[in-house]
Design a protein around this nucleic acid. Sequence first.
RNA 1: GGGCCUGUAGCUCAGUUGGUUAGAGCGCGCCCCUGAUAAGGGCGAGGUCACUGGUUCAAUUCCAGUUAGGCCCA
Length: 931
Amino acid sequence: MEMKDTLNLPNTDFPMKANLTQREPELLARWEKEKLYEKIRQSARGKPQFVFHDGPPYANGHIHIGHALNKLLKDFIVKIMNMKGFDAGFIPGWDCHGLPIEHQVGKKLKEKKLSLEKSEIRKQCRVYAQEFVGIQKEEFKRLGIFADWENPYLTMNFSYEATIVREFGKFVEKGLVYKGLKPVHWCTSCKTALAEAEVEHNEHTSPSIYVKFPVQSGIPQSVGVLNSEKLFMVIWTTTPWTLPANLAICLHPEFIYVAVAHGDDTYIVAEDRLSMLVSEWEWKDYKILGSCKGADWENAVCRHPFIDRESKVILGEHVTLEQGTGCVHTAPGHGQDDYIVGLKYGLEPYNPVDDGGVFRSDVEHFGGMFVRKANPEIIEKLRQDGFLIRDENIKHSYPHCWRCHQPVIFRATNQWFISMDKTDLRKNALDGIGRTKWIPQWGRDRIYSMIENRPDWCVSRQRSWGVPITLFTCNACGDFINSSDLFERIAGGVEKYGADFWFDSLPEELLPEGTVCQCGGKEFSREDDILDVWFDSGVSHVAVIEKNSELNWPADLYLEGSDQHRGWFHSSLLESIGTRGKEPYKSVLTHGYVVDGKGKKMSKSAGNVIAPQKIIDQYGAEILRLWVASENYREDIRVSNEILKRLTESYKKIRNTLRYLLGNLHDFDCKEDQVPVNEMLELDRYILHRFNILREKILTAYENYEFHVFYHSFSNFCIIELSAFYLDIIKDRLYTYPAKSRERRSGQTALHILLMGMVRLIAPILSFTAEEVWNHLPKNSVDEESVHMSQFLDPENVSFDENLVKKWEFLVELKGEVSKALETSRRDKIIGHSLDSIVKLELPDNFKAIVKNDELKYIFIVSEVVLVDSIGSEEKIFESDSLQGVKVFSEMHPGKKCERCWHYFEPDVKEGKANGEICSRCEDHLQTAGA
RNA sequence: GGGCCUGUAGCUCAGUUGGUUAGAGCGCGCCCCUGAUAAGGGCGAGGUCACUGGUUCAAUUCCAGUUAGGCCCA
């Protein structure tokens, strides 16, 4: 063991075992204590800005892995931009209003049998949201995300709420806001509108009837000559009570419709439904008289069976052949599809039913009747008048109220809308999409077609937890007051007291004295609805960026999941275009969804959910970070235990490589010991040349937000170029040469440059580990207290010309071929370690010219290399496939193994040097070191 | 049902502007080392490029359909 003590072996306190679950919280505590985020922000002042704008997650529940993916990608980008020399901050936000929270709170209050007063609900909702903001904040912080966690934006902050009021006011002023009818789920016993999430689907028995609508005019010629006197279109419905509101019959433009004669009458139904229908109706004799496409029936007109009104024949893609006749009874006031298709044909969302589900008195035959009570009456009337083909009862799934469990109805109610076309909002938004950079590119098409096809934006909700629609309606004429002064007055109140100001004040307090409507009316009603929460988050670009005088508007980047093309990207765009005529972002980056190891979505019921908290507890946040970096997030990305295990292995390799660099720099002071690059050994310059290539690749990848390129190229560099090649080769030099020798210092200089570059490159991704390395750097290496305050470095000029590159590419490949040859000797038990061998090498002339013999044995890590013109015809000669003409023969070295450097040598007894236990090279080194 | 996206070794990713034996790392198998040591090195085996048609002298790469999956709608 004596010889070992004469070597310069690696030595470092940097632990091999990461122990992330324990070390990460320590680092987090230190960062927080030292206010690192603030320091980074301060040192970035005056640099060019990169404005990233965080989309607000909903303040409900713990974060799931999708949240982690999203926020970590953002963290990578912000850290990268800072290290590239930009001024980039991260202001996190939360979406706080809305139904899910109101739901949770409603449940709690109900259980405790407390009052369900609106003001009490709102109060509780605020507490609830605040609680989850706190929970999620801690969970995000644990991931190592650097953000202004002390000053996040919350959509329920008073100032934010005031921004919402003001922004909505702008839409009102510009004349985009109007009141219209739209069908919504409605509970007739609670007398309230219900959101989709408040509806539960239960079994219900309904009538199922087929009804004849007499065709009045517009029979297409393509169907053939038909007698219009006794021609009927047949519809099917399970809600006879909606028939009084029937305004149209909808056909699919592409389906074939037949005219079928039965008895004296002729009926129009879809061809593909006919066989089902005739068996259901028990028809024996019938005859097809003609047929044509649905599109040909457009503009035909039918007569309502019991009301003196026309029923137009219209076309719609939503018509299916699964049930019914292919001719769909359409009541735009009572159905979603009916409403949408009705908009196209200018049909009003006619609703003859009041809040309690009772027909208004002006409804012929059935006025004053409750809708479900009216069902049998309507059927009877149809039967008597000869318009009923068949009726029976069916059991099917039907929406019920989540609170009282009664069946609900669909009913047109007054809602507030933002018009897409009155002032070209749609057109301008589409132009804005064209000016924005969408990554990946297909995002553009996705949002474009959504904006292109969407109906007007319905912004009202009949709920409590949100920002009110601050409008007053004149009781006399029904118009609303459009006054910017009034809006500002209310916004000011909201800024001071929150949105409760609107609900808790009396109308007289809100309205200036003597307010008079244009019609002369003096009495007004205060709007009770709240705004769609998408409007809330849609104004974040104003509340967070525009109102912040230090930030440039619009944002450089939005980054969310691809679902936000319909969500936040969409609402933010409409808001910004509608009020400012310009899009709120320059570029929009989307990521896919996290799915399980088999590519299936994660769900509680499938039992395949992987929680980020569990990954952190088991592996550490660093592994989660590395996972995000390792996958191509533009598509859906997978997570599984296998994947995480592999990443842990990969992490260890990176960590150990860095540790080895640190270990060999324990006695290196870069101020004193650094060798100028142009004086360094060729091999050392070669690895720096390779590192320059790697760095450029990674920085380009960072610029394109392609983090998986970092992961692959960086870990490959550690494994292939460093561990298996460079570091393996220079061990001999680092360990056996005198500590202060030029050769050793040259190698250490290379290691130091590598380490300084590498620790910065990994910092945005492996933020914990990079900091840990930073804390173990040899003296005089850096000035900054944290790696996260440092910048990426410029490449080292190693002047490695084309010829040198060619030479070293050849040497790398040649080393591989020699390894193969050694492996056969190893199989044959001739050698164990590669240093046991002496290698004979035959090279073609073109290669012979570029290599120097004395460097080869160190590169191959063998004891001796003999270059020969012809290797002879011995057995077991290895001939290379990839390097034409290269032949290798390896055998056991006949000399003695040096106890110190493990190279074999021929003892020179005559000289009497030592006693032949160590080689002359080591003799010299020991002497130099000792002197 | 519609729009958009995706399917290359066990895992994560390259790649082919259509053209000889489709690449990398990890993992796996075998071996070496014990001076990075709960480390390090070497060699090797793994793929009908989701499936089926079409275009072409030639397709994993282009087109169409099918299938499996994802997001958003209905």
